[in-house]
Amino acid sequence: MTMTTTRARWRRVALAGWLAFAACVTVAVVRATTAHFPQPSRRLSDAERVELGRVAAHVEPAWRERNRRSFPGDHWSQDDDFGAYERQWVLGEAYRRGVPVTDVFGAVDAELHSAPVSPPRKATASPCKPRPFYD
């Protein structure tokens, strides 16, 4: 086999390498852009939205009390703990009603924006102050 033939063969190998790499890129892009996650088909009705907002407002004071006892004197942790309670409730409601989680959060937000909120409820969250210990 001559040197020229060998070179030509390696050039073909190199070209095949680029084509294979381009194929990998294509597969990755196609797979990423065509992947599909089905959304819940049902959405919250206006009446359900108002009802959920009211329920969330009703349960908030009890959660706040628990948050204060769990993290005495630590306002950010209290609010963060509240967020964890709210999350559980929202996910549960969304699952129970078969609606997007976003809709339930939207209902809570709409209720908060419907009128100024007064204590023991809160329409704000304490500035972020991460705890210094994690271990």
């Binding site: 609010d79 963060d80 967020g83 964890a84 709210e86 999350r87 929202v90 996910l91 989680v101 976003t102 959060f105 939207g106 937000d109 908060l112 924006h113 809160k122 329409a123 704000t124 969250a125 500035p127 972020c128 991460p130």
Partner: peptide, 23 residues
């Protein structure tokens, strides 16, 4: 919005800022 850092992704879809912050 008051927001919720545990589920913050939903608030952008609502075009709401989450004041609750867990950085």
């Amino acid at each position: 919005a008051r927001g919720n850092r545990w589920e913050q992704g939903h608030f952008l879809a609502l075009n709401r800022g989450s004041i609750a912050c867990g950085e």
